[in-house]
Structures are given as structure tokens and as C-alpha cells.
Design a protein around this nucleic acid. Structure first.
Lengths: 244, 244
DNA sequence: CGCGCCCTTGAGAGTAGTCAAGCTTTGTGG
DNA sequence: CCACAAAGCTTGACTACTCTCAAGGGCGCG
């Protein structure tokens, strides 16, 4: 905990959106109540329905947040990259996680109990404001995605998902832009609200066109502009009145 | 403003989720910075993209919050009933409204400027906590709806939408449960992410089955249990692995 | 009375889901 | 280190949901 403490304080805490703008004393407070944990690939960090939800921040690795309905259908709500907060919505409602969190790679995360975070927010209103900003942004993203799901075809949704993932964790390499998450076809399908089969067909087609490659479950995008074009493509426009 | 002030304080303020649990002095603060406005049916309360977003609370009437994409497609994000907060997400991000708000009936609302609400939240942290709770709940709802859009067929989505509307504003009448919003077929379509035509066919079928009636643009549900059943119907289950 | 708005209905087409089968890669234990 | 099993991916054929387009009817308001 001591070593973790120093690691947290010096290197990362100030850069986490949730704890941005805090005075040193407040930072001390935050670090004191943190709990750090490691998870190996494929481990569950929490399960949908678990109570005593905690607020998590990912320091290293990647995490898949997914939700299953009573009918067994699954969707990936979000993938978490280092520095991002997750599992926090529950803290403001019934303290039960609304989704599963699974480590996609070996990961390292810190978390705070609901009570501790509440105390932090009361003592340091900046934390509450930061949280509002984050949750507000997530809500807007969710609304955008709802619009996509309602109005766009699968191919466009896959394109948008890739564009978003590039924005989230894209890294320039000599081969193109690499997305850091290890993505199975099924993940992409569950992100876009389609099936494994459709996702596979679409990505295979794009690989054949030379727009991207999959290497070791990582997508490397060679022609981002082509992907973006598909995402905005007006041919085959469905619903709505089109452009003026 | 004086009469409004008293109206607000006495009757409604304490019952608004956003201002719940405030001390009288704080309530005074809140009322002092409120601005009240009336809108006639079909008037725009704000437009997508407008800056200087304010936090709104609806006191009477009903409001449609809808978003249009660059491709012209539209979706109804939410319908607002009296007592609910709206247009507030923008306050925590870039202060631009992410959606349109239109009065579906003559309405009466109060609003606060972003700066004033921020001040209120700093002076009375309870307001920030309330806001977090509300935004958190909205985010969960949005996530549920995303799952619906991803995994369910149109008929089920329409059923769920009706169930939700009943929960939101259902009122028992001698004829059945009436939904207070005036709903055009197009509204229902835009709520469910489908087309006017599909919505019409589905509702017409349900009317023929005697499960509901439309009178004067209000839905009256006679057999809520049938609607609920459709929403959960496992026949024709798509995607996901089904039930154990 | 007519125009605008909203709703219904039919016919046809296309997107994307389902199912089945086989292939490739990855991981594990002998 | 090999072999086999498990997990993941691809592809084809078929099906069905629901979107699109077109046409017409009803109602209310100016």
C-alpha cells in the first residue's frame, strides 16, 4: 500500500479526470482510502448485480464492461482504457453494479468504496463536479450511440465503433493506427449491436480491401479515412429525411 | 416573479428531485435565481447546438427532447413530465444543448443559468449529489435502452416503451391506464428507433386485439399485462443464447 | 370548404439474422 | 515438443423482419 501510495500520488492521481484539480491535501485523502488490485486476463472484476459497488479507476490493462439482459442477450457497454473510471454509476443509485467488468488483459486498478467516495465528494466538492462532468459526458455518448443504433446500418455502426476506439486508444505505428484493446469479432459485434457473423463479414471485407488488418487480436487501421467515409456514407440512407 | 416565487417554494420546490433535502435558506437561494417561462404547444424551448445552456425543470405540461443527426435522422431521447429536470447534461460539458426541446402541450417551466446552478451546487453540495443521482439514473436508463435497441425486435421495443411511459405518467381511468403525453405515431417510432409505418402497424394490431385505444392522441392501455407479455416474449428471440 | 396533418394499408425489396459446417489459432497436458 | 482440445473466425445458403415507397382516408382548423 505504501509503494502503491507513492506510485499513485506522484505519477497518476493528478492526471485522472476524476481527481483533477485537487489540492495536495485532498490528494493525500484520496490516496489514503484507495485499494489497489491486480487481475489476470479474463478475470472478473465485478459482476452485474453485485452490491457494495465501488468506484474504480483503471491504471493499467483493459477492461470490458458488458451487460446481459434477462433474455441472455449481451452488449458491450464500453471498453475501459488506462486512466478511465468505471463501475461508478452504481454509486449514485442502488449501489449494485449494472454490468459485468472483465479484464481483457492483465490489469491493475484502484478502487474506493461508495462511502469513502461520498466522503471525498463532501470534503472536496471538486470531486463531485468532476464526477458530474464524467457522467454527463458518458450520458451524451450513450445518447449518440442510441441514435446510431436507431438509425444506422450495421456497416456504419462498425465503422463508427472503430473510429471511436481509435480516438480512445489509437496509437500510431508504422503499419497504421493500432487499437490497443484485444478485440474478438464477438466484442465488435456486441459493441455495435449486431452478430458475430455480420461483424466478421464486414471486417473481412475491409481487410480484403486493405483498409485494416487484425494481428494478434489487435486491429491496425491502415486507411482511417476509408473507415470514416463508410461511417458517414449517405448511400443507402435509412430513415429520416436525408440532407437538405 | 413574486407569485411564481411563492408558488415554487410552497408547492413544488421541495418535491423536485434536483432540490430535494435542502434547508429553507437554500431553497430561498434556489428560488431567487430561477427564471420561469411559459410556452405554447409546439413552441421550441431550446434548440440543439444552442449555447448558454440552462438547467430546466418542467412544472406543467409535457416536453419532447429529440436529437437529430447530421444525416437528418431523428430520435426522441426522452419525454419530460412535470417535476422532471431536462436540458441539464449540457451544463457539465460544453454548455451547448445536445438536443431540441419542444413543448408538446402548453407548458410552464423554470430554469437556472449554468453559472447560477454551479453556484448553488457549490453552496449546497446536496444539489450536486442530487444531480449526480439523476444523471446516473438517466445513464442507466440509456444503457438499458441501448441493450433493447441492440437485441430486441421492433414489437418488443414498442411494448417496452409503452410500459416505461405508463410507469412515467400512467394514470388509472375507468377505461384503463392513460398515458398523459399526446403521442403521434411518429413519436412512438422515434422513441423506439423504428419507422412511422411499423409503429402504426403494431399499434393498430394491438388496438384490434383490444389491448389499447388511442383517443385524441392519448394512449389508453386496457390490458397492460398483454403489452408486458409482448415485451418479454421469448418467441422469435434474436441474438444471444436464449434461456438456460 | 379545403388544406394540412396524421394515420392506415399493401406490395416489394434489402439488410441482416440464423443455422450449419469447416478452418485456423491458441493454449494445455502428456 | 507434439497432439489434441477449445476458442475464435470465415463462409455459404436460407429466412425473415422491417424498411421503403405509394396511395388513399379521416379529422380538425382556419
Amino acid at each position: 500500500m505504501m509503494t502503491l501510495g507513492t506510485t499513485l500520488t506522484r505519477r497518476t492521481l493528478a492526471s485522472l479526470e476524476l481527481f483533477r484539480g485537487l489540492l495536495p491535501a485532498a490528494q493525500q485523502d484520496v490516496v489514503a482510502s484507495a485499494r489497489a488490485q491486480r487481475f489476470i486476463r479474463n478475470a472478473r472484476i465485478f459482476n452485474q448485480g453485485d452490491s457494495n459497488a465501488r468506484a474504480h479507476v483503471l491504471l493499467d490493462g483493459s477492461v470490458r464492461i458488458s451487460q446481459s439482459g434477462s433474455d441472455g442477450a449481451q452488449i458491450v457497454m464500453r471498453l475501459i482504457a488506462p486512466g478511465e473510471m468505471f463501475g461508478t454509476v452504481a454509486l449514485f443509485t442502488d449501489h449494485r453494479y449494472p454490468a459485468d467488468a472483465e479484464a481483457m488483459t492483465d490489469t491493475f486498478e484502484v478502487s474506493w468504496s461508495g462511502a469513502d467516495l461520498l466522503k471525498l465528494m463532501q470534503r472536496h466538492p471538486q470531486v463531485a463536479t468532476n464526477a458530474l462532468k464524467i457522467v454527463g459526458k458518458r450520458l451524451q455518448e450513450a445518447q449518440d450511440r442510441m441514435r446510431e443504433l436507431s438509425t444506422q446500418r450495421v456497416e456504419q455502426r462498425v465503422a463508427h465503433a472503430i473510429v471511436r476506439l481509435i480516438r480512445q486508444t489509437g496509437r500510431e505505428t508504422e503499419d497504421g493506427i493500432a487499437i490497443m484493446f484485444p478485440l474478438r469479432r464477438k466484442d465488435i459485434a456486441d459493441i455495435c449491436g449486431t452478430t458475430l457473423y455480420s461483424a466478421s463479414r464486414i471486417l473481412t471485407a475491409w481487410e480484403k480491401a486493405g483498409w485494416l488488418v487484425t494481428r494478434d487480436q489487435r486491429l491496425i487501421v491502415r486507411k482511417p479515412s476509408e473507415i470514416r467515409r463508410i461511417g458517414e456514407d449517405l448511400r443507402g440512407l435509412r430513415r429520416g429525411k436525408g440532407i437538405a
